[in-house]
Design a protein around this nucleic acid. Sequence first.
RNA 1: UGCCCGAUAGUAUAAAGGUAGUACAACGGUUUUUGGUACCGUUUGUCUAGGUUCGAAUCCUGGUCGGGCAACCA
Length: 553
Amino acid sequence: MSEERSLNFIEEIIENDLNSGKYATLITRFPPEPNGYLHIGHAKAICLNFGLTKKYGGYTNLRFDDTNPVTEKTEYVNSQQEDIKWLGFQWKNELYTSDYFDTLYDYAVDLIKKDLAYVDHSTAEEIAALKGTPTEPGIGSTYRNRSVEENLDLFSRMKNGEFEDGICTLRAKIDMASPNMLMRDPILYRIKHAAHHRTGDKWCIYPMYDFAHGQSDSMETITHSICTLEYVSHRELYDWLIEKLGIFPSKQYEFARLNLSYTVMSKRKLLQLVNEDFVSGWNDPRMPTISGLRRRGYTPESIREFCDRIGIAKRENLIELGLLEFCVREHLNKTATRVMAVLDPIKLVITNYQKDQTEILIGENNPEAEDKGGTREIPFSNELWIEREDFMEEPAKKWFRLAPGSMVRLKHAYIVKCEDFKKDAEGNVTEIHCTYIPDTKSGADTSGINVKGTIHWVSRQHAKNAEIRLYDRLFTVESPDAEEGDFKDYLNPNSIEVIKQAYIEPYMSNASKDIRYQFIRKGYYCLDDDSTPELLIFNRTVSLKDAWAKTNK
RNA sequence: UGCCCGAUAGUAUAAAGGUAGUACAACGGUUUUUGGUACCGUUUGUCUAGGUUCGAAUCCUGGUCGGGCAACCA
Protein backbone atom coordinates (compact mmCIF):
# COMPACT_ATOMS: atom_id res chain seq x y z
CA MET A 1 0.00 0.00 0.00
CA SER A 2 1.98 2.96 -1.19
CA GLU A 3 -0.86 5.41 -1.62
CA GLU A 4 -1.65 7.02 1.69
CA ARG A 5 -5.29 7.90 1.97
CA SER A 6 -6.40 10.09 4.84
CA LEU A 7 -8.85 8.63 7.32
CA ASN A 8 -12.51 9.54 7.37
CA PHE A 9 -14.00 10.52 10.70
CA ILE A 10 -15.34 7.04 11.41
CA GLU A 11 -11.98 5.45 10.74
CA GLU A 12 -10.44 7.94 13.14
CA ILE A 13 -12.89 6.95 15.85
CA ILE A 14 -12.23 3.29 15.23
CA GLU A 15 -8.47 3.65 15.27
CA ASN A 16 -8.71 5.53 18.54
CA ASP A 17 -10.97 2.88 20.05
CA LEU A 18 -8.72 0.08 18.89
CA ASN A 19 -5.50 1.79 19.96
CA SER A 20 -6.86 2.73 23.37
CA GLY A 21 -7.92 -0.85 23.95
CA LYS A 22 -11.58 0.08 24.27
CA TYR A 23 -12.38 -2.77 21.92
CA ALA A 24 -10.25 -5.73 20.94
CA THR A 25 -12.30 -6.56 17.86
CA LEU A 26 -14.24 -4.36 15.51
CA ILE A 27 -17.78 -5.55 14.88
CA THR A 28 -20.14 -3.78 12.49
CA ARG A 29 -23.42 -4.67 10.89
CA PHE A 30 -25.36 -3.88 7.76
CA PRO A 31 -29.06 -3.72 8.71
CA PRO A 32 -31.39 -3.39 5.70
CA GLU A 33 -35.13 -3.62 6.04
CA PRO A 34 -36.30 -6.25 3.54
CA ASN A 35 -38.91 -4.00 1.99
CA GLY A 36 -37.28 -3.23 -1.35
CA TYR A 37 -34.21 -3.70 -3.45
CA LEU A 38 -30.84 -2.32 -2.45
CA HIS A 39 -29.57 0.74 -4.30
CA ILE A 40 -26.29 2.56 -4.81
CA GLY A 41 -26.86 4.45 -1.56
CA HIS A 42 -26.95 1.13 0.26
CA ALA A 43 -23.78 0.20 -1.58
CA LYS A 44 -22.11 3.13 0.15
CA ALA A 45 -23.19 1.77 3.54
CA ILE A 46 -22.23 -1.78 2.58
CA CYS A 47 -18.77 -0.75 1.43
CA LEU A 48 -18.35 1.28 4.60
CA ASN A 49 -19.42 -1.38 7.08
CA PHE A 50 -17.80 -4.34 5.37
CA GLY A 51 -14.82 -2.29 4.26
CA LEU A 52 -14.06 -1.24 7.82
CA THR A 53 -13.82 -4.78 9.16
CA LYS A 54 -11.86 -5.84 6.11
CA LYS A 55 -9.38 -3.08 6.87
CA TYR A 56 -9.18 -3.36 10.64
CA GLY A 57 -10.06 -7.00 11.19
CA GLY A 58 -13.18 -8.16 13.01
CA TYR A 59 -16.40 -8.92 11.19
CA THR A 60 -19.68 -7.61 9.86
CA ASN A 61 -23.09 -9.13 10.41
CA LEU A 62 -25.95 -8.97 7.98
CA ARG A 63 -29.06 -8.27 9.97
CA PHE A 64 -32.44 -7.90 8.36
CA ASP A 65 -34.37 -5.28 10.23
CA ASP A 66 -37.71 -6.96 9.95
CA THR A 67 -39.94 -5.39 12.55
CA ASN A 68 -42.75 -4.36 10.23
CA PRO A 69 -44.38 -7.46 8.74
CA VAL A 70 -46.72 -5.61 6.42
CA THR A 71 -44.00 -4.24 4.15
CA GLU A 72 -41.41 -6.99 4.30
CA LYS A 73 -40.97 -9.98 2.03
CA THR A 74 -38.66 -12.94 1.58
CA GLU A 75 -38.19 -11.88 -2.05
CA TYR A 76 -36.42 -8.80 -0.78
CA VAL A 77 -34.31 -10.78 1.69
CA ASN A 78 -33.07 -12.91 -1.18
CA SER A 79 -32.36 -10.05 -3.54
CA GLN A 80 -30.52 -8.13 -0.86
CA GLN A 81 -28.30 -11.09 -0.07
CA GLU A 82 -27.54 -11.58 -3.74
CA ASP A 83 -26.61 -7.94 -4.17
CA ILE A 84 -24.27 -7.86 -1.19
CA LYS A 85 -22.50 -11.00 -2.37
CA TRP A 86 -22.27 -9.66 -5.90
CA LEU A 87 -20.65 -6.51 -4.57
CA GLY A 88 -17.99 -8.79 -3.17
CA PHE A 89 -18.72 -8.91 0.53
CA GLN A 90 -19.34 -11.78 2.90
CA TRP A 91 -21.11 -11.39 6.22
CA LYS A 92 -20.17 -13.31 9.31
CA ASN A 93 -23.66 -14.03 10.65
CA GLU A 94 -26.97 -13.89 8.85
CA LEU A 95 -29.35 -12.50 11.44
CA TYR A 96 -32.85 -11.12 11.71
CA THR A 97 -34.24 -8.70 14.22
CA SER A 98 -37.15 -11.13 14.38
CA ASP A 99 -34.72 -13.63 15.92
CA TYR A 100 -34.70 -11.34 18.93
CA PHE A 101 -38.45 -10.91 19.40
CA ASP A 102 -38.46 -13.03 22.56
CA THR A 103 -35.58 -11.14 24.13
CA LEU A 104 -37.01 -7.83 23.06
CA TYR A 105 -40.27 -8.76 24.74
CA ASP A 106 -38.37 -9.52 27.95
CA TYR A 107 -36.59 -6.19 27.69
CA ALA A 108 -39.96 -4.47 27.45
CA VAL A 109 -41.17 -6.29 30.56
CA ASP A 110 -38.00 -5.23 32.32
CA LEU A 111 -38.67 -1.61 31.44
CA ILE A 112 -42.25 -1.88 32.70
CA LYS A 113 -41.01 -3.32 35.97
CA LYS A 114 -38.66 -0.37 36.32
CA ASP A 115 -41.68 1.88 35.75
CA LEU A 116 -40.04 3.16 32.58
CA ALA A 117 -42.76 1.99 30.20
CA TYR A 118 -46.54 1.92 30.18
CA VAL A 119 -49.43 0.71 28.11
CA ASP A 120 -51.26 3.62 26.52
CA HIS A 121 -54.82 3.27 25.28
CA SER A 122 -54.74 6.59 23.48
CA THR A 123 -55.49 6.58 19.77
CA ALA A 124 -52.84 7.51 17.24
CA GLU A 125 -54.51 10.90 16.87
CA GLU A 126 -54.53 11.50 20.61
CA ILE A 127 -50.88 10.57 20.90
CA ALA A 128 -50.01 12.94 18.11
CA ALA A 129 -52.05 15.74 19.65
CA LEU A 130 -50.42 15.37 23.06
CA LYS A 131 -46.97 15.09 21.60
CA GLY A 132 -46.60 18.86 21.28
CA THR A 133 -44.55 20.43 18.54
CA PRO A 134 -40.86 21.12 18.19
CA THR A 135 -41.43 24.47 19.86
CA GLU A 136 -44.02 23.46 22.47
CA PRO A 137 -43.72 20.69 25.06
CA GLY A 138 -46.07 17.73 24.98
CA ILE A 139 -48.53 16.63 27.62
CA GLY A 140 -48.52 13.31 29.41
CA SER A 141 -51.17 10.77 28.48
CA THR A 142 -53.86 9.99 31.05
CA TYR A 143 -52.61 6.40 31.00
CA ARG A 144 -49.09 7.47 31.88
CA ASN A 145 -49.43 6.68 35.58
CA ARG A 146 -50.82 3.19 35.41
CA SER A 147 -49.31 0.87 37.99
CA VAL A 148 -46.53 -1.53 37.12
CA GLU A 149 -48.88 -4.48 37.77
CA GLU A 150 -51.54 -3.11 35.48
CA ASN A 151 -49.00 -2.42 32.75
CA LEU A 152 -47.53 -5.90 33.09
CA ASP A 153 -50.98 -7.41 32.77
CA LEU A 154 -52.00 -5.22 29.85
CA PHE A 155 -48.77 -5.81 27.97
CA SER A 156 -49.07 -9.57 28.27
CA ARG A 157 -52.65 -9.29 27.05
CA MET A 158 -51.41 -7.27 24.10
CA LYS A 159 -49.05 -10.09 23.30
CA ASN A 160 -51.79 -12.67 23.73
CA GLY A 161 -53.91 -11.04 21.09
CA GLU A 162 -56.66 -9.72 23.30
CA PHE A 163 -56.69 -6.36 21.57
CA GLU A 164 -57.34 -5.26 18.05
CA ASP A 165 -54.77 -3.35 16.02
CA GLY A 166 -54.31 0.20 17.25
CA ILE A 167 -56.17 -0.20 20.54
CA CYS A 168 -53.10 0.43 22.62
CA THR A 169 -49.33 0.66 22.49
CA LEU A 170 -46.45 0.25 24.85
CA ARG A 171 -44.66 3.53 25.38
CA ALA A 172 -41.45 4.45 27.15
CA LYS A 173 -41.91 6.84 30.04
CA ILE A 174 -39.25 9.47 29.45
CA ASP A 175 -39.97 13.17 29.15
CA MET A 176 -42.93 14.76 27.39
CA ALA A 177 -41.17 18.11 27.49
CA SER A 178 -37.92 16.96 25.95
CA PRO A 179 -36.63 19.21 23.17
CA ASN A 180 -36.00 15.95 21.32
CA MET A 181 -39.39 14.83 20.03
CA LEU A 182 -38.23 11.22 20.08
CA MET A 183 -37.83 11.33 23.82
CA ARG A 184 -41.49 12.33 24.37
CA ASP A 185 -42.58 8.87 25.43
CA PRO A 186 -41.82 7.07 22.17
CA ILE A 187 -43.90 4.07 21.19
CA LEU A 188 -42.04 0.83 21.80
CA TYR A 189 -44.55 -1.80 20.69
CA ARG A 190 -47.62 -1.69 18.52
CA ILE A 191 -50.26 -4.29 17.76
CA LYS A 192 -50.31 -5.69 14.25
CA HIS A 193 -52.27 -8.83 13.56
CA ALA A 194 -50.20 -9.56 10.49
CA ALA A 195 -48.22 -12.59 9.40
CA HIS A 196 -44.51 -12.05 9.54
CA HIS A 197 -42.28 -13.41 6.76
CA ARG A 198 -40.32 -15.44 9.29
CA THR A 199 -42.23 -15.72 12.57
CA GLY A 200 -45.58 -16.28 10.87
CA ASP A 201 -48.45 -15.85 13.32
CA LYS A 202 -46.42 -16.23 16.48
CA TRP A 203 -46.62 -12.53 17.28
CA CYS A 204 -49.28 -9.90 17.02
CA ILE A 205 -47.19 -7.21 18.64
CA TYR A 206 -44.07 -5.91 16.96
CA PRO A 207 -41.34 -3.64 18.31
CA MET A 208 -40.71 -0.28 16.72
CA TYR A 209 -37.37 0.44 15.09
CA ASP A 210 -36.14 2.36 18.11
CA PHE A 211 -36.91 -0.46 20.47
CA ALA A 212 -35.24 -3.03 18.26
CA HIS A 213 -32.22 -1.55 16.60
CA GLY A 214 -30.03 -0.56 19.50
CA GLN A 215 -30.81 -3.68 21.47
CA SER A 216 -30.09 -5.86 18.46
CA ASP A 217 -26.76 -4.09 18.05
CA SER A 218 -26.13 -4.66 21.71
CA MET A 219 -26.96 -8.36 21.58
CA GLU A 220 -24.50 -8.77 18.74
CA THR A 221 -21.95 -6.63 20.61
CA ILE A 222 -21.70 -4.34 17.63
CA THR A 223 -18.92 -1.94 18.56
CA HIS A 224 -19.68 0.72 15.96
CA SER A 225 -23.24 1.00 14.76
CA ILE A 226 -23.03 3.12 11.65
CA CYS A 227 -26.10 4.71 10.13
CA THR A 228 -27.18 7.76 8.17
CA LEU A 229 -27.76 11.29 9.40
CA GLU A 230 -31.52 11.06 9.81
CA TYR A 231 -30.89 8.92 12.86
CA VAL A 232 -28.86 11.52 14.72
CA SER A 233 -31.75 12.45 16.94
CA HIS A 234 -32.48 8.79 17.59
CA ARG A 235 -29.11 8.38 19.25
CA GLU A 236 -30.31 9.87 22.53
CA LEU A 237 -33.06 7.26 22.70
CA TYR A 238 -30.67 4.54 21.54
CA ASP A 239 -28.35 5.37 24.43
CA TRP A 240 -31.20 5.78 26.92
CA LEU A 241 -32.58 2.30 26.24
CA ILE A 242 -29.18 0.66 26.46
CA GLU A 243 -28.48 2.42 29.72
CA LYS A 244 -31.83 1.62 31.33
CA LEU A 245 -31.65 -1.98 30.20
CA GLY A 246 -28.04 -2.26 31.38
CA ILE A 247 -26.89 -4.06 28.25
CA PHE A 248 -23.77 -3.93 26.08
CA PRO A 249 -23.18 -0.32 25.09
CA SER A 250 -23.03 -0.27 21.30
CA LYS A 251 -22.36 3.22 19.99
CA GLN A 252 -24.09 4.83 17.05
CA TYR A 253 -22.27 7.03 14.51
CA GLU A 254 -23.93 8.83 11.64
CA PHE A 255 -22.69 9.77 8.18
CA ALA A 256 -24.34 11.58 5.27
CA ARG A 257 -26.25 9.39 2.86
CA LEU A 258 -25.42 9.37 -0.83
CA ASN A 259 -27.35 11.57 -3.20
CA LEU A 260 -26.64 11.03 -6.88
CA SER A 261 -27.48 13.61 -9.50
CA TYR A 262 -30.23 12.86 -12.03
CA THR A 263 -31.79 10.11 -9.95
CA VAL A 264 -33.80 9.47 -6.81
CA MET A 265 -32.66 7.32 -3.99
CA SER A 266 -35.59 6.66 -1.70
CA LYS A 267 -37.00 3.15 -1.70
CA ARG A 268 -40.47 4.62 -1.62
CA LYS A 269 -39.92 6.53 -4.84
CA LEU A 270 -38.14 3.68 -6.54
CA LEU A 271 -41.03 1.40 -5.61
CA GLN A 272 -43.38 3.91 -7.18
CA LEU A 273 -41.42 3.84 -10.44
CA VAL A 274 -41.70 0.06 -10.41
CA ASN A 275 -45.36 -0.16 -9.43
CA GLU A 276 -46.50 2.49 -11.87
CA ASP A 277 -44.52 0.95 -14.74
CA PHE A 278 -42.24 3.87 -15.40
CA VAL A 279 -39.49 1.27 -15.47
CA SER A 280 -39.58 -2.45 -16.23
CA GLY A 281 -38.78 -3.50 -12.68
CA TRP A 282 -36.37 -3.10 -9.80
CA ASN A 283 -33.57 -4.25 -12.08
CA ASP A 284 -34.38 -1.97 -14.99
CA PRO A 285 -30.96 -0.86 -16.27
CA ARG A 286 -31.92 2.76 -15.66
CA MET A 287 -32.56 2.20 -11.97
CA PRO A 288 -29.93 3.15 -9.38
CA THR A 289 -30.50 -0.21 -7.71
CA ILE A 290 -27.63 -2.65 -7.40
CA SER A 291 -29.56 -5.09 -9.56
CA GLY A 292 -30.26 -2.37 -12.13
CA LEU A 293 -26.62 -1.35 -12.28
CA ARG A 294 -25.63 -5.00 -12.58
CA ARG A 295 -27.96 -5.52 -15.50
CA ARG A 296 -26.73 -2.28 -17.03
CA GLY A 297 -23.22 -3.73 -17.01
CA TYR A 298 -21.64 -2.00 -14.05
CA THR A 299 -19.03 -4.12 -12.30
CA PRO A 300 -18.70 -4.64 -8.54
CA GLU A 301 -15.17 -3.27 -8.78
CA SER A 302 -16.37 -0.02 -10.29
CA ILE A 303 -19.08 0.44 -7.67
CA ARG A 304 -16.64 -0.23 -4.86
CA GLU A 305 -14.22 2.24 -6.38
CA PHE A 306 -16.99 4.79 -6.60
CA CYS A 307 -17.92 4.32 -2.96
CA ASP A 308 -14.29 4.72 -2.07
CA ARG A 309 -13.92 7.94 -4.00
CA ILE A 310 -17.03 9.71 -2.71
CA GLY A 311 -15.75 9.58 0.84
CA ILE A 312 -17.54 9.55 4.17
CA ALA A 313 -18.49 12.76 5.93
CA LYS A 314 -21.40 14.42 7.67
CA ARG A 315 -22.32 17.19 5.27
CA GLU A 316 -25.13 16.86 2.77
CA ASN A 317 -23.83 16.02 -0.67
CA LEU A 318 -24.91 15.53 -4.25
CA ILE A 319 -22.46 13.40 -6.18
CA GLU A 320 -22.18 13.97 -9.89
CA LEU A 321 -23.34 11.03 -11.96
CA GLY A 322 -20.18 11.61 -14.00
CA LEU A 323 -18.06 10.20 -11.21
CA LEU A 324 -19.91 6.88 -11.29
CA GLU A 325 -19.47 6.81 -15.05
CA PHE A 326 -15.79 7.61 -14.70
CA CYS A 327 -15.36 4.66 -12.33
CA VAL A 328 -17.02 2.16 -14.62
CA ARG A 329 -15.14 3.42 -17.67
CA GLU A 330 -11.90 3.16 -15.77
CA HIS A 331 -12.53 -0.49 -14.90
CA LEU A 332 -14.03 -1.49 -18.22
CA ASN A 333 -11.22 0.16 -20.17
CA LYS A 334 -8.87 -2.30 -18.55
CA THR A 335 -11.06 -5.36 -18.87
CA ALA A 336 -13.50 -5.09 -21.77
CA THR A 337 -13.09 -7.06 -24.98
CA ARG A 338 -12.99 -4.76 -28.01
CA VAL A 339 -15.29 -5.54 -30.90
CA MET A 340 -16.86 -3.58 -33.72
CA ALA A 341 -20.55 -2.81 -33.96
CA VAL A 342 -22.39 -0.40 -36.20
CA LEU A 343 -25.45 1.12 -34.57
CA ASP A 344 -26.67 3.43 -37.33
CA PRO A 345 -25.55 1.71 -40.52
CA ILE A 346 -24.82 3.10 -43.93
CA LYS A 347 -23.40 1.01 -46.75
CA LEU A 348 -19.83 1.48 -47.87
CA VAL A 349 -18.74 -0.18 -51.14
CA ILE A 350 -15.08 -0.68 -51.94
CA THR A 351 -15.10 -0.44 -55.68
CA ASN A 352 -11.61 -1.79 -56.30
CA TYR A 353 -11.93 -4.76 -53.94
CA GLN A 354 -12.88 -8.03 -55.61
CA LYS A 355 -16.58 -8.79 -55.22
CA ASP A 356 -16.52 -12.36 -53.98
CA GLN A 357 -13.40 -12.06 -51.95
CA THR A 358 -13.35 -12.46 -48.19
CA GLU A 359 -10.26 -11.73 -46.22
CA ILE A 360 -9.73 -12.70 -42.60
CA LEU A 361 -8.13 -9.95 -40.56
CA ILE A 362 -6.76 -10.30 -37.04
CA GLY A 363 -7.78 -7.93 -34.27
CA GLU A 364 -6.43 -7.51 -30.77
CA ASN A 365 -9.14 -8.02 -28.20
CA ASN A 366 -7.83 -5.53 -25.69
CA PRO A 367 -4.83 -3.27 -26.30
CA GLU A 368 -4.88 -2.32 -22.60
CA ALA A 369 -4.35 -5.89 -21.38
CA GLU A 370 -0.88 -7.35 -20.86
CA ASP A 371 -1.43 -10.11 -23.40
CA LYS A 372 -3.63 -7.83 -25.53
CA GLY A 373 -6.52 -10.05 -24.54
CA GLY A 374 -5.72 -12.48 -27.32
CA THR A 375 -6.89 -11.97 -30.88
CA ARG A 376 -9.91 -12.70 -32.99
CA GLU A 377 -10.68 -13.10 -36.66
CA ILE A 378 -12.60 -10.41 -38.46
CA PRO A 379 -13.92 -11.03 -41.99
CA PHE A 380 -13.50 -8.26 -44.55
CA SER A 381 -15.15 -7.88 -47.93
CA ASN A 382 -16.08 -5.30 -50.52
CA GLU A 383 -19.33 -4.22 -48.85
CA LEU A 384 -19.27 -2.93 -45.30
CA TRP A 385 -21.53 -1.23 -42.83
CA ILE A 386 -20.12 1.89 -41.30
CA GLU A 387 -21.57 4.43 -38.91
CA ARG A 388 -23.70 7.07 -40.59
CA GLU A 389 -22.17 9.76 -38.39
CA ASP A 390 -18.70 8.91 -39.69
CA PHE A 391 -19.46 10.47 -43.06
CA MET A 392 -19.98 14.15 -43.71
CA GLU A 393 -20.94 15.42 -47.13
CA GLU A 394 -19.62 18.84 -46.26
CA PRO A 395 -16.90 18.27 -43.68
CA ALA A 396 -16.68 20.53 -40.68
CA LYS A 397 -13.39 22.12 -39.76
CA LYS A 398 -11.08 19.64 -38.10
CA TRP A 399 -13.18 16.75 -39.39
CA PHE A 400 -10.97 13.77 -40.00
CA ARG A 401 -13.38 11.04 -40.80
CA LEU A 402 -14.97 10.27 -44.16
CA ALA A 403 -15.92 13.00 -46.60
CA PRO A 404 -15.79 13.27 -50.37
CA GLY A 405 -12.17 12.84 -51.38
CA SER A 406 -10.89 12.14 -47.84
CA MET A 407 -9.10 9.10 -46.51
CA VAL A 408 -9.62 7.16 -43.29
CA ARG A 409 -8.33 3.93 -41.90
CA LEU A 410 -10.78 1.12 -41.43
CA LYS A 411 -9.86 -0.27 -38.02
CA HIS A 412 -7.80 -3.47 -38.31
CA ALA A 413 -7.97 -3.18 -42.12
CA TYR A 414 -7.04 -0.81 -44.92
CA ILE A 415 -7.01 2.88 -45.62
CA VAL A 416 -9.83 3.83 -47.95
CA LYS A 417 -10.50 6.94 -49.96
CA CYS A 418 -13.99 8.26 -50.50
CA GLU A 419 -14.62 8.62 -54.22
CA ASP A 420 -18.36 9.06 -54.42
CA PHE A 421 -21.68 8.73 -52.59
CA LYS A 422 -25.35 8.29 -53.42
CA LYS A 423 -28.42 9.99 -52.02
CA ASP A 424 -32.09 9.16 -52.07
CA ALA A 425 -34.93 11.49 -53.03
CA GLU A 426 -35.04 13.01 -49.54
CA GLY A 427 -31.36 13.82 -49.70
CA ASN A 428 -30.25 11.10 -47.29
CA VAL A 429 -26.92 9.53 -48.07
CA THR A 430 -27.57 5.90 -48.92
CA GLU A 431 -24.24 4.58 -50.08
CA ILE A 432 -20.61 5.57 -50.00
CA HIS A 433 -18.12 4.48 -52.62
CA CYS A 434 -14.47 4.14 -51.76
CA THR A 435 -11.29 2.70 -53.14
CA TYR A 436 -8.90 0.92 -50.82
CA ILE A 437 -5.14 1.15 -50.86
CA PRO A 438 -3.76 -2.42 -50.90
CA ASP A 439 -0.41 -1.75 -49.23
CA THR A 440 -1.99 -0.09 -46.17
CA LYS A 441 -3.11 -3.31 -44.53
CA SER A 442 -3.13 -3.01 -40.77
CA GLY A 443 0.12 -4.20 -39.24
CA ALA A 444 1.78 -4.42 -42.66
CA ASP A 445 1.43 -0.90 -43.93
CA THR A 446 4.25 -0.05 -46.32
CA SER A 447 2.55 2.91 -47.94
CA GLY A 448 3.84 5.66 -45.72
CA ILE A 449 0.40 7.25 -45.86
CA ASN A 450 -0.79 8.84 -42.66
CA VAL A 451 -4.45 9.42 -41.93
CA LYS A 452 -5.88 11.05 -38.88
CA GLY A 453 -9.15 9.19 -38.70
CA THR A 454 -9.87 5.56 -37.94
CA ILE A 455 -13.41 4.26 -38.14
CA HIS A 456 -15.05 0.97 -37.24
CA TRP A 457 -17.03 -1.20 -39.62
CA VAL A 458 -18.66 -4.60 -40.07
CA SER A 459 -18.59 -6.71 -43.23
CA ARG A 460 -22.09 -6.65 -44.68
CA GLN A 461 -22.31 -10.30 -45.67
CA HIS A 462 -20.83 -11.50 -42.39
CA ALA A 463 -22.61 -9.17 -39.98
CA LYS A 464 -24.81 -10.46 -37.19
CA ASN A 465 -27.93 -8.55 -36.37
CA ALA A 466 -28.33 -7.28 -32.83
CA GLU A 467 -30.69 -5.20 -30.75
CA ILE A 468 -29.02 -2.49 -28.77
CA ARG A 469 -30.54 -0.59 -25.89
CA LEU A 470 -29.16 2.83 -25.17
CA TYR A 471 -29.83 4.37 -21.79
CA ASP A 472 -29.65 7.90 -20.58
CA ARG A 473 -30.23 9.49 -17.18
CA LEU A 474 -33.63 8.68 -15.70
CA PHE A 475 -34.42 12.30 -14.84
CA THR A 476 -33.91 15.57 -16.66
CA VAL A 477 -32.97 17.53 -13.56
CA GLU A 478 -30.06 17.14 -11.18
CA SER A 479 -32.11 16.80 -8.07
CA PRO A 480 -35.66 15.57 -8.78
CA ASP A 481 -36.50 15.56 -5.06
CA ALA A 482 -35.73 19.23 -4.76
CA GLU A 483 -37.93 20.37 -7.64
CA GLU A 484 -41.44 21.74 -7.46
CA GLY A 485 -44.25 19.26 -7.84
CA ASP A 486 -44.01 15.53 -8.29
CA PHE A 487 -40.62 13.99 -8.93
CA LYS A 488 -42.12 11.94 -11.75
CA ASP A 489 -42.79 15.14 -13.70
CA TYR A 490 -39.06 15.23 -14.31
CA LEU A 491 -38.63 11.76 -15.77
CA ASN A 492 -36.51 11.82 -18.91
CA PRO A 493 -38.73 10.70 -21.81
CA ASN A 494 -35.59 9.68 -23.71
CA SER A 495 -34.04 7.57 -20.98
CA ILE A 496 -34.17 4.53 -23.26
CA GLU A 497 -33.67 4.21 -26.99
CA VAL A 498 -33.87 0.81 -28.65
CA ILE A 499 -31.98 0.12 -31.84
CA LYS A 500 -33.52 -2.90 -33.51
CA GLN A 501 -31.19 -3.15 -36.48
CA ALA A 502 -27.57 -2.89 -35.44
CA TYR A 503 -24.79 -4.93 -36.99
CA ILE A 504 -22.05 -6.64 -35.13
CA GLU A 505 -19.01 -8.76 -35.87
CA PRO A 506 -19.68 -12.49 -36.36
CA TYR A 507 -17.29 -13.11 -33.44
CA MET A 508 -20.11 -11.94 -31.21
CA SER A 509 -22.30 -14.93 -31.93
CA ASN A 510 -20.41 -16.39 -28.99
CA ALA A 511 -20.98 -13.35 -26.81
CA SER A 512 -21.14 -14.13 -23.13
CA LYS A 513 -22.87 -12.49 -20.21
CA ASP A 514 -19.67 -12.84 -18.24
CA ILE A 515 -17.70 -10.67 -20.63
CA ARG A 516 -17.96 -6.90 -20.92
CA TYR A 517 -17.46 -5.48 -24.38
CA GLN A 518 -16.29 -2.24 -25.76
CA PHE A 519 -17.87 -1.46 -29.08
CA ILE A 520 -14.92 0.40 -30.47
CA ARG A 521 -15.40 4.16 -30.51
CA LYS A 522 -18.93 3.79 -29.14
CA GLY A 523 -18.98 2.63 -25.55
CA TYR A 524 -19.17 -0.28 -23.18
CA TYR A 525 -21.88 -2.87 -23.64
CA CYS A 526 -23.04 -6.08 -22.06
CA LEU A 527 -25.42 -8.83 -23.02
CA ASP A 528 -28.88 -8.24 -21.57
CA ASP A 529 -30.85 -10.87 -19.68
CA ASP A 530 -33.44 -10.78 -22.47
CA SER A 531 -30.86 -11.86 -25.03
CA THR A 532 -31.26 -15.21 -26.84
CA PRO A 533 -28.98 -17.04 -29.27
CA GLU A 534 -31.38 -15.99 -32.05
CA LEU A 535 -31.55 -12.34 -31.04
CA LEU A 536 -28.56 -10.79 -29.36
CA ILE A 537 -29.53 -7.88 -27.11
CA PHE A 538 -26.99 -5.52 -25.67
CA ASN A 539 -27.24 -2.81 -23.04
CA ARG A 540 -25.06 0.22 -23.26
CA THR A 541 -23.42 0.53 -19.87
CA VAL A 542 -21.83 3.87 -20.64
CA SER A 543 -20.58 5.62 -23.74
CA LEU A 544 -16.96 6.38 -24.38
CA LYS A 545 -15.87 9.95 -23.79
CA ASP A 546 -16.40 11.83 -27.01
CA ALA A 547 -14.04 14.75 -27.47
CA TRP A 548 -15.32 15.36 -30.99
CA ALA A 549 -18.91 15.75 -29.86
CA LYS A 550 -17.67 18.26 -27.33
CA THR A 551 -15.58 20.39 -29.68
CA ASN A 552 -18.32 20.23 -32.23
CA LYS A 553 -20.93 21.57 -29.83
C1' U B 1 -40.12 31.11 17.84
C1' G B 2 -37.37 25.16 20.15
C1' C B 3 -33.62 21.27 19.69
C1' C B 4 -29.89 18.72 16.76
C1' C B 5 -26.35 18.36 12.50
C1' G B 6 -23.51 20.80 8.92
C1' A B 7 -20.78 24.79 5.85
C1' U B 8 -13.18 24.29 2.16
C1' A B 9 -12.62 25.19 -6.08
C1' G B 10 -18.25 23.47 -10.47
C1' U B 11 -18.82 18.43 -7.47
C1' A B 12 -16.87 15.57 -3.65
C1' U B 13 -13.10 15.03 0.00
C1' A B 14 -8.20 16.12 2.98
C1' A B 15 -5.25 19.49 6.03
C1' A B 16 -5.88 17.37 14.41
C1' G B 17 -3.08 26.10 15.54
C1' G B 18 2.26 26.40 11.14
C1' U B 19 3.14 26.00 2.72
C1' A B 20 -4.87 25.11 1.64
C1' G B 21 -3.76 19.35 -1.00
C1' U B 22 -6.20 15.14 -3.89
C1' A B 23 -9.89 13.14 -7.23
C1' C B 24 -13.75 13.97 -10.78
C1' A B 25 -15.32 18.00 -14.00
C1' A B 26 -13.61 22.12 -17.17
C1' C B 27 -9.71 24.10 -20.30
C1' G B 28 -4.92 23.51 -23.10
C1' G B 29 -1.10 20.19 -24.88
C1' U B 30 1.86 15.37 -26.00
C1' U B 31 1.20 10.32 -27.59
C1' U B 32 -2.17 7.19 -30.30
C1' U B 33 -4.38 2.41 -36.26
C1' U B 34 -10.49 3.83 -30.88
C1' G B 35 -11.48 12.09 -31.61
C1' G B 36 -10.94 6.18 -26.46
C1' U B 37 -6.77 5.14 -23.10
C1' A B 38 -2.17 7.03 -21.08
C1' C B 39 0.83 11.25 -19.85
C1' C B 40 1.81 16.63 -18.97
C1' G B 41 0.03 21.42 -17.81
C1' U B 42 -3.73 25.42 -16.48
C1' U B 43 -8.02 27.67 -14.12
C1' U B 44 -11.10 27.71 -9.87
C1' G B 45 -11.79 27.39 -2.82
C1' U B 46 -11.76 28.11 3.46
C1' C B 47 -20.15 31.26 4.35
C1' U B 48 -19.86 36.09 7.20
C1' A B 49 -18.45 39.60 11.27
C1' G B 50 -15.72 39.92 15.47
C1' G B 51 -12.34 37.66 19.19
C1' U B 52 -7.99 34.53 21.13
C1' U B 53 -2.91 33.80 19.07
C1' C B 54 3.53 35.40 16.69
C1' G B 55 0.27 32.55 13.47
C1' A B 56 -6.78 30.35 12.50
C1' A B 57 -9.98 26.37 7.40
C1' U B 58 -8.99 24.56 12.39
C1' C B 59 -10.27 27.36 18.90
C1' C B 60 -14.31 31.04 21.04
C1' U B 61 -18.75 34.37 20.23
C1' G B 62 -22.60 36.48 17.13
C1' G B 63 -24.90 36.16 12.45
C1' U B 64 -26.17 33.92 7.55
C1' C B 65 -27.31 29.79 4.72
C1' G B 66 -28.46 24.40 4.09
C1' G B 67 -30.40 19.79 6.24
C1' G B 68 -33.07 16.98 10.05
C1' C B 69 -36.84 16.47 14.11
C1' A B 70 -44.08 16.67 15.67
C1' A B 71 -45.21 7.90 11.33
C1' C B 72 -48.63 2.68 15.82
C1' C B 73 -42.25 3.51 8.95
C1' A B 74 -37.16 2.18 9.03
